[in-house]
Protein backbone atom coordinates (compact mmCIF):
# COMPACT_ATOMS: atom_id res chain seq x y z
CA UNK A 1 0.00 0.00 0.00
CA UNK A 2 1.12 3.51 -0.78
CA UNK A 3 2.61 5.30 2.20
CA UNK A 4 3.75 8.49 0.56
CA UNK A 5 1.09 11.19 0.70
CA UNK A 6 0.71 13.73 -2.06
CA UNK A 7 1.79 17.17 -0.83
CA UNK A 8 -0.70 19.89 0.04
CA UNK A 9 -1.14 22.93 -2.23
CA UNK A 10 -2.74 26.29 -1.52
CA UNK A 11 -5.04 27.53 -4.26
CA UNK A 12 -5.49 31.15 -5.30
CA UNK A 13 -8.11 32.21 -7.83
CA UNK A 14 -8.69 35.44 -9.72
CA UNK A 15 -12.47 35.74 -9.74
CA UNK A 16 -12.72 38.35 -12.46
CA UNK A 17 -10.36 40.33 -14.63
CA UNK A 18 -9.00 43.25 -12.65
CA UNK A 19 -9.22 41.58 -9.23
CA UNK A 20 -6.44 40.06 -7.13
CA UNK A 21 -5.97 36.34 -6.88
CA UNK A 22 -7.55 35.27 -3.62
CA UNK A 23 -6.92 32.26 -1.42
CA UNK A 24 -9.85 29.83 -1.76
CA UNK A 25 -8.61 26.65 -0.08
CA UNK A 26 -6.18 23.81 -0.49
CA UNK A 27 -5.88 20.37 -2.05
CA UNK A 28 -3.51 17.45 -2.48
CA UNK A 29 -1.69 16.75 -5.75
CA UNK A 30 1.54 15.00 -6.74
CA UNK A 31 2.93 18.03 -8.61
CA UNK A 32 2.14 21.59 -9.66
CA UNK A 33 0.60 20.61 -12.96
CA UNK A 34 -1.83 18.19 -11.33
CA UNK A 35 -2.55 20.73 -8.60
CA UNK A 36 -3.68 23.17 -11.31
CA UNK A 37 -5.90 20.56 -12.94
CA UNK A 38 -7.40 19.48 -9.62
CA UNK A 39 -7.94 23.11 -8.59
CA UNK A 40 -9.95 23.64 -11.76
CA UNK A 41 -12.25 20.75 -10.83
CA UNK A 42 -12.46 21.44 -7.11
CA UNK A 43 -12.71 25.23 -7.05
CA UNK A 44 -14.07 26.46 -10.40
CA UNK A 45 -16.99 24.15 -11.22
CA UNK A 46 -19.30 27.16 -11.49
CA UNK A 47 -17.05 29.58 -13.36
CA UNK A 48 -15.65 31.08 -10.17
CA UNK A 49 -12.40 32.12 -11.83
CA UNK A 50 -10.43 33.29 -14.83
CA UNK A 51 -6.97 32.36 -13.51
CA UNK A 52 -5.48 29.98 -10.93
CA UNK A 53 -2.25 30.04 -8.92
CA UNK A 54 -1.05 27.01 -6.96
CA UNK A 55 1.67 27.14 -4.29
CA UNK A 56 2.93 24.20 -2.30
CA UNK A 57 1.78 24.80 1.29
CA UNK A 58 5.21 24.18 2.82
CA UNK A 59 6.61 27.06 0.75
CA UNK A 60 4.47 29.54 2.65
CA UNK A 61 6.01 31.28 5.65
CA UNK A 62 3.35 32.50 8.04
CA UNK A 63 3.45 34.95 10.93
CA UNK A 64 2.82 33.32 14.27
CA UNK A 65 -0.45 33.98 16.13
CA UNK A 66 1.54 34.68 19.33
CA UNK A 67 3.34 37.58 17.61
CA UNK A 68 0.08 39.23 16.66
CA UNK A 69 0.51 41.99 19.26
CA UNK A 70 4.05 43.14 18.43
CA UNK A 71 3.35 42.71 14.69
CA UNK A 72 0.16 44.65 14.30
CA UNK A 73 -0.52 46.76 17.38
CA UNK A 74 2.02 49.53 16.61
CA UNK A 75 -0.17 50.67 13.70
CA UNK A 76 -2.99 51.40 16.14
CA UNK A 77 -1.40 54.58 17.52
CA UNK A 78 -0.59 56.00 14.10
CA UNK A 79 -3.98 57.40 13.31
CA UNK A 80 -2.36 60.21 11.30
CA UNK A 81 -1.92 57.66 8.52
CA UNK A 82 -5.62 58.05 7.78
CA UNK A 83 -6.89 61.08 5.85
CA UNK A 84 -9.68 61.70 8.39
CA UNK A 85 -7.00 62.66 10.96
CA UNK A 86 -6.65 66.06 9.31
CA UNK A 87 -9.37 68.70 9.53
CA UNK A 88 -9.59 70.64 6.33
CA UNK A 89 -11.97 73.64 6.32
CA UNK A 90 -15.06 73.29 4.11
CA UNK A 91 -14.06 76.45 2.20
CA UNK A 92 -11.10 74.58 0.75
CA UNK A 93 -13.46 72.25 -1.06
CA UNK A 94 -13.00 68.58 -1.83
CA UNK A 95 -9.58 67.17 -1.06
Amino acid sequence: MSKKEWPLWEIFIRGQHGLNHRHVGSLHAPDAEMALRNARDVYTRRKEGVSIWVVESRQITASSPSEKGPMFDPAESKVYRHPTFFDIPDEVGHM
Binding site: W6, P30, D31
Partner: peptide, 19 residues
Amino acid sequence: WDEGAWFRDGLTAYAEKAE
Protein backbone atom coordinates in the same frame (compact mmCIF):
# COMPACT_ATOMS: atom_id res chain seq x y z
CA TRP B 1 -8.35 2.79 -2.00
CA ASP B 2 -6.58 -0.51 -2.73
CA GLU B 3 -6.97 -0.46 -6.48
CA GLY B 4 -6.02 3.22 -6.69
CA ALA B 5 -2.73 2.67 -4.85
CA TRP B 6 -0.70 2.03 -8.03
CA PHE B 7 -2.11 5.24 -9.51
CA ARG B 8 -1.27 7.38 -6.48
CA ASP B 9 2.22 5.85 -6.40
CA GLY B 10 2.66 6.28 -10.15
CA LEU B 11 1.91 9.98 -10.04
CA THR B 12 4.25 10.42 -7.08
CA ALA B 13 7.03 8.57 -8.93
CA TYR B 14 6.48 10.73 -12.01
CA ALA B 15 6.57 13.93 -9.93
CA GLU B 16 9.81 12.86 -8.24
CA LYS B 17 11.43 11.94 -11.57
CA ALA B 18 10.42 15.23 -13.16
CA GLU B 19 11.76 17.11 -10.14
